[in-house]
Computed example of a mutant assay.
Amino acid sequence: MGYVTTADGVEIFYKDWGPRDAQPVFFHHGWPLSSDDWDNQMLFFVARGYRVVAADRRGHGRSAQVSDGHDMDHYAADTAAVVEHLGLRNAIHIGHSTGGGVVARYTARHGGGGRVARAVLIGAVPPIMLKTAANPGGLPVEVFDGFRAALAANRAQFYLDVPAGPFYGFNRPGAAVSQGVIENWWRQGMAGGAKAQYDGIKAFSETDFTDDLKAIAVPTLVLHGDDDQIVPIADSALLSAKLLQNGTLKVYPGFPHGMCTTHADVINADLLAFVKS
């Protein structure tokens, strides 16, 4: 574990486990979490001989709580700084939710020269979440305004309500609710900065990744649960898979947004199969 300083002077925290000569698997977390959200997957892959890397985005987790740069261009550039610092090549980049947007932007703009071998988008925000004239099926801005209002009014309560409800599908009848999972989500969210997370709502909801997706040539796996209450599948994964040059879509019936946690055994097996294919 360590830090890398970006070109604009921001300290980014990263984890780097496993053999240095093994193929790297780089994990990108969702909003408003940290690299800790990938604990299960990182332990799974490092146990199978891979080099696993994950970073806390600027303003999140243990990275610097800076005021500015909370947008996809900076997130991608920060990823590039970690990649170059560690000398990673032929890497598999896996992103969940907002992290999927980072993977798309990073791969399209910084992934050449053999840096990226494959990509995975899980419950990811591309192509664009916001409802616009060009994206009439998106979510209205009032949804995201509600996120911002709840964060500003009582971030601590908001960060209990999201995981206790729609994020993991714990609001569904018969759901196996885990208090530990809820509190771990809260812990990660509260470790980050309120300003970064507030600004990050605009980044994940309003960024248009259409051109990024079209530019990605490496094999890309798109995974999504059809009961995702955070990033609706119809205007994300189904569209992304069509825009990618070499995309493969897999839909999981009944799986929630946080399926990497609630169904880790299934997701891990599918990720491993893709990485080895």
Score class of each variant (00 low, 15 high):
residue 146 G to R: 08
residue 125 V to I: 12
residue 121 L to H: 05
residue 137 G to I: 09
residue 96 H to I: 12
residue 97 S to K: 07
residue 102 V to L: 13
residue 124 A to C: 09
residue 170 F to C: 05
residue 83 V to T: 06
residue 136 P to G: 12
residue 149 A to Y: 15
residue 113 G to Q: 02
residue 112 G to V: 06
residue 104 A to L: 04
residue 134 A to Y: 12
residue 158 F to M: 14
residue 107 T to Q: 02
residue 105 R to C: 15
residue 140 P to A: 09
residue 134 A to N: 11
residue 141 V to P: 11
residue 97 S to G: 05
residue 152 A to F: 11
residue 132 T to S: 13
residue 133 A to E: 14
residue 85 H to G: 00
residue 76 A to N: 08
residue 140 P to M: 10
residue 101 G to F: 07
residue 121 L to T: 02
residue 126 P to D: 01
residue 87 G to M: 03
residue 165 G to H: 07
residue 115 R to I: 15
residue 134 A to V: 11
residue 130 L to Y: 05
residue 91 A to D: 01
residue 127 P to E: 08
residue 139 L to W: 04
residue 170 F to L: 03
residue 146 G to S: 07
residue 143 V to S: 10
residue 119 A to H: 00
residue 82 V to C: 00
residue 103 V to H: 00
residue 116 V to N: 04
residue 89 R to I: 00
residue 86 L to Q: 06
residue 172 R to M: 06
residue 118 R to V: 03
residue 156 A to S: 13
residue 101 G to A: 03
residue 92 I to E: 02
residue 133 A to P: 13
residue 166 P to R: 14
residue 81 A to G: 02
residue 156 A to Y: 04
residue 166 P to C: 05
residue 96 H to Y: 13
residue 138 G to T: 06
residue 84 E to V: 05
residue 99 G to L: 06
residue 125 V to T: 11
residue 158 F to H: 10
residue 155 R to E: 15
residue 115 R to T: 15
residue 77 A to M: 10
residue 128 I to M: 14
residue 111 G to S: 09
residue 134 A to G: 12
residue 114 G to I: 04
residue 109 R to N: 15
residue 112 G to L: 07
residue 77 A to T: 11
residue 154 N to I: 06
residue 108 A to E: 00
residue 145 D to K: 14
residue 81 A to V: 08
residue 129 M to I: 07
residue 96 H to D: 03
residue 108 A to K: 00
residue 104 A to Y: 04
residue 87 G to F: 06
residue 154 N to C: 09
residue 149 A to Q: 14
residue 105 R to L: 02
residue 138 G to S: 04
residue 77 A to L: 12
residue 88 L to H: 01
